[in-house]
């Protein structure tokens, strides 16, 4: 006999729209109802108020939100050139981490108060092992994956790093802040995109710690 939790997990992982389960005089039906939302001006607010019941992207690529997109930040041509060294690694493939920030919160030990529908960073990357250490942005700023334009990135997927090694830089107000590895291990994901604006708490890297029990 399967538990409701197992069924719910099955429902989610296989992205079903309807599941009926009957055994031992108990019948359980899980059904995904499409939500019809009419909104005029605030798609993000509409999704937010329906507690994330909608599917799809909530906030689009930030670079398209402003009237001077392309000339502004975040998608702007950085000193390193658009799509320069060390773009978002591990994109595509594998599964999707449900919420970038929820995972970041848990890793950082802060209250998991992220409201439903807050997945502002819909980066898709390879499935991360739950025991991986997540490295999140300690401040708002521009990500730089290497010390100088054209030089080798500090860290890439698959590479081994030691505790304290610089993984990337975040520039804020002309000062460059180093983001360092909290533990020694192997980089399993690097969604940190060179030249992009990282918000506080955005996922930059995931590390499979050397000491992790598999």
């Amino acid at each position: 006999m399967r538990s409701p939790e197992e069924l719910a997990a099955l429902f989610e992982s296989h992205n079903l729209t309807r599941l009926e389960y009957e055994e031992g005089g108990v019948r359980l039906v899980l059904e995904r109802q499409p939500v019809n939302i009419q909104y005029l001006g605030y798609p993000a607010a509409a999704s937010h108020l329906t507690a994330g019941a909608t599917s799809g992207q909530l906030l689009g690529d930030a670079s398209t939100l402003f009237s001077d997109a392309g000339a502004g930040v975040d998608g702007r041509v950085s000193a390193f050139g658009a799509g320069g060294v060390g773009g978002a690694d591990g994109a595509g493939g594998g599964g999707t981490l449900v919420s970038n920030h929820a995972a970041g919160n848990q890793a950082a030990g802060s209250p998991s108060g992220s409201p439903v529908g807050s997945a502002a960073n819909n980066t898709t990357f390879s499935a991360i092992n739950p025991s991986d250490i997540l490295v999140t942005a300690p401040l708002l700023g521009i990500i730089y994956r290497s010390a100088e334009p054209g030089s080798e990135p500090y860290a890439t997927v698959g590479e081994h790093v030691n505790a304290g090694d610089v993984l990337c830089l975040i520039e804020a107000m002309k000062t460059f802040n180093q983001v360092t590895a909290p533990v020694g291990g192997t980089i399993t994901a690097a969604p940190a995109e060179n030249g992009r604006l990282a918000e506080y708490g955005d996922l930059l890297f995931a590390i499979a710690a050397d000491s992790a029990v598999r």
Binding site: H48, L49, N105, S110, S114, A120, L140, E199, Y200, D202
Partner: peptide
């Protein structure tokens, strides 16, 4: 972080999280 996704953030052209 506590206000991530809060309603007021959705009323802006864009919002950025700046700290814990």
């Amino acid at each position: 972080e506590a206000d991530r996704g809060a309603l007021f953030t959705t009323l802006a052209t864009r919002s950025v999280c700046i700290g814990p």
